[in-house]
Amino acid sequence: MFPRPIEQAPTATRWLYRVAVPVALFLWLLPLLGVAVTSVRPASDLAQGNYFGMPSSIAFSNYREVFANSPMASYMLNSFKVTIPTVIGALALSCMTGFALAIYNFRSNLLVFFMFVAGNFVPFQILMVPVRDLTLSLDMYNTWYGLALFHIAFQTGFCTLFMRNFIKALPFELIEAARVEGVSEVRIFWHVVLPLMRPAIAALSVLIFTFIWNDFFWATVLSNSPESQPITAGLSSLNGQWIAQWHLVSAGSILAALPPVAMFFLMQRHFIAGLTLGAVK
C-alpha cells in the first residue's frame, strides 16, 4: 500500500492524522458550508452585516420564499423531466451499440467506436447553431423532449465507450456457448449479456443523471422560458433578479445541488465505478 499505512506510524502521528483529515475537509468545503449556512440565515442578519457569525435564528422561511416567489418548483420538475428520459434513452441505445462493438468483429468496428469516443469530446459550441436550428425546426424549442433528445444522442457517445469496454471484459465463452446451442443473436443480447450488464447500467445511470441535471449550456441554448427551463438555467436567471439577496441565492443553490448529491450518496459505489472506468487497467 502507498503511502505506508498510518497504523504503522507512531501514536502521535496517528493522532495528528486523525485531526488533520477533518480539518482539511472543513477547509475544503468551507465555501459550500458558508452557502449552506447563508441559506438559513434570516434576511435581517444580512442587512445588519452579520454574514459569518452565528445566524440569529434558523430561517427555513428562505426556502419557502424561494418556492413561493420564484418558479423554482417548475424548474426542478423540468430538470427531472429532461434528466430521467435522457438516462433511460442513452442507456437503451448504448447497451445495444456497446454490445455490437464489443461482440462482433466487423471491419469498421474500431472506426465506429472511435467516432463515438471522439464525438463525446467535441466542444459543445461547434454543435450549438445547427442543433438549435434543428430543435427550432422540429418545434421542440422550449420543450423537455427537445433537450432530452439532444442529451440522449450526445451521451450515447460516452455510454458506448463505457458499455463496450464493460462487455469486452465479460467472458466471451458465454456467447460462444449460446451460439453453439443455436441461440439467435438478439436473444444472446437479451438473455445472456443484458443480465450481466446490471452493474454497468447502475453506474452509468447515476453518472448520466448527474451530468444532465448539472448541464447548463444546453439548458440555456434550447430553452428560455421559466415553464421549460431546467434548474441550472433557472437558477442563473434568478441570480440576475435576486441581486445581493444572498440568502435566496444560497437557498436556490442548495436546492439545485440536492438531487445529484442525494443520488451520489445513495449510489456512491456505482458512481465511482462509473467515473473511474479505465483509470485502473
Binding site: 441505445l93 448504448s94 445495444m96 451499440t97 454490445f99 455490437a100 462493438l101 461482440i103 462482433y104 466487423f106 468496428n109 465506429v112 467516432m115 463515438f116 464525438g119 467535441v122 461547434i126 454543435l127 447553431v129 445547427p130 442543433v131 434543428l134 433528445l149 439532444f150 440522449i152 444522442a153 450526445f154 450515447t156 457517445g157 458506448t160 443480447f189
Partner: peptide, 19 residues
C-alpha cells in the same frame, strides 16, 4: 451488429456528427 448500432448511430449522426 448494424441492427444494434442503427438507433444509436442515427441519433449520433443527426445530433453530433452532422452539426
Amino acid at each position: 451488429p448494424w441492427l444494434f448500432l442503427a438507433p444509436g448511430l442515427a441519433m449520433f449522426a443527426v445530433y453530433v456528427v452532422s452539426p
